[in-house]
Structures are given as C-alpha cells and as structure tokens.
C-alpha cells in the first residue's frame, strides 16, 4: 500500500485514497480499511462507499467537523494490516449461456476466433474478485477477465437488460441484479437473485468476495426459477474502428 491520502470532496465527505491502480492485490487492504473506518467513525458515519482504490467517507457534521473527521481517518489507518485472504465469501453462480439470453456470445466468439463453447469455458475458468458495488443496487464489478475475452462496451446501451444477465465489458464481468438499461455485452443469464430487500445484508455479493460461474442447461436454469424470455433488443455492436 502506498501512503494513503485523505482528500476533501465535499462539505461532509472525504475520500481516503489507498491505491492508484485497479489490482486484485488491493482487496485485503481495502477490506481492512473498510472495517477500521467503520469502527473509528461509529455513529458519526452516515455512509462508507468503497471503490477499487478509494473509500468515500460520508460523516455526520452534527458530530464531527473536518479536523475531527480527518483525525478519525488517520487513527483508523494507523497500523492497518491487510485482511487475511479467503475472508470474503465464495459463490458459484449457475449461468445458462445461450445467444437467446446472451446475444453477444457470438460477437465475443468472433473476436476470440473460437466457438461460443470456448467463450463459455474461458468465462467459467477462473475465480473473479468483487472489486466494487455500484451502478445499481447489488451490481458488482468483478475482474479480472481473461485478456482474450476483453470486449468494449456496446456502442449504444440497451434500454432493457433482463435481471440476471451476465455481462462483460473490457476486463470486467458483472451480473445485472434487476431489469435496467445497460451497455455491457450480455453472454448468459443466471436464475440466482442478487439483491433482495428480505435478504440478510440485501446484496449477495460484497467487495472481496470470490465468484465463479458455472454453465448450466436451459432445463436446469428453468428448474432453478430462471426466466428464459429472450433479450428482445439486439445490442448495437460497434465496428472495430469505432471502439
């Protein structure tokens, strides 16, 4: 970890910057900082938003002024030790990979110069780290993707991406928790619910978790409660010149 910086970003918010670049190796430090900051701020914390390299601390200005808030951050970071690996949860997410629910399987296979099965095998071949949550409730940015699968975002985002859609953009992968617009390449769909107001902690994924995808059949997908309705809209695929 480089020397952390504490930056003022608003009347009641600080950014704690631990790293400059996205890296899986950051995660144990980020998790440790998350825990230490929550502890140091206690009830004076309104929200803490970790991202790849930073944590946004939104504190209660009725309890703390800027100086006191900065002091709490410094206190939290003093003697920080990285969280032990394997602390996050491991998830195996079943996915029905099929062009009807994952139209960009074709595009990615073409780029790879292989078959759709090759794409599926590569997507399922490694554990992904959850780097950050954002964009929508329970939407987890995961990486790093196999270099050969890295694909630019769609030129024009879809208006509607079905809940459970498994997606790829550049060297990251994600699952859309709910029906939403989206510009990522869709390759399949999971029957697993990722976000629920009745679920403990609401979100299935947390930063630092490890996720592996597992290919399942259409039958298994439906059996597990999946909705096989095809993605109606075709993705607007950019030509290589545009990306």
């Amino acid at each position: 970890m480089s020397d952390p910086s504490i930056e003022t970003v608003g009347m009641d918010s600080l950014i704690v910057r631990l790293f400059d670049n996205i890296d899986e190796e950051n995660m144990p430090w980020m998790l440790a900082a998350d825990r230490a900051l929550r502890e140091a701020f206690g009830e004076a914390l309104i929200d803490l938003v970790p991202s790849y390299t930073t944590l946004l601390v939104h504190y209660d200005i009725q309890r703390l002024d800027l100086q006191a808030a900065r002091a709490r951050v410094s206190e939290a970071l003093k003697g920080l030790t990285p969280a032990t690996s394997g602390e996050g949860q491991r998830h195996v997410i079943p996915v029905w990979y099929d062009v009807s629910v994952g139209p960009e399987l074709e595009r990615i296979a073409e780029r790879l110069g292989g078959s759709q099965e090759d794409v599926i095998a590569r997507h399922c071949a490694r554990d992904y780290s959850v780097f950050a949550l954002g964009f929508a409730p329970g939407y987890a940015f995961m990486g790093r993707l196999d270099d050969e699968l890295a694909t630019p975002r769609l030129k024009t985002p879809r208006q509607k991406v079905a809940a459970g859609s498994v997606a790829i953009a550049e060297r990251q992968t994600a699952v859309y928790p709910t029906l939403s617009p989206g510009g990522w390449n869709i390759v399949g769909r999971t029957p697993v619910a990722l976000f629920g107001r009745d679920r403990e902690g609401y979100s299935l994924f947390r930063p630092g978790d490890k996720v592996r995808f597992e290919a399942i059949s259409r039958e298994a997908f439906i059996e597990q409660g999946g909705d096989p309705t095809p993605l109606a809209e075709r993705g607007d695929i950019p030509t290589e010149a545009q990306t």
């Binding site: 970003v9 608003g10 009347m11 009641d12 918010s13 950014i15 400059d20 670049n21 996205i22 938003v49 970790p50 991202s51 790849y52 390299t53 930073t54 944590l55 946004l56 939104h58 950050a132 954002g134 940015f141």
Partner: peptide, 10 residues
C-alpha cells in the same frame, strides 16, 4: 480516473 464514491452535489 478510477471510479470512486460520489458525494451529494459533486
């Protein structure tokens, strides 16, 4: 920049 948390009014 790498994506980071956004405060109100940013």
């Amino acid at each position: 920049m790498v994506s980071e948390g956004i405060p109100l009014g940013a």
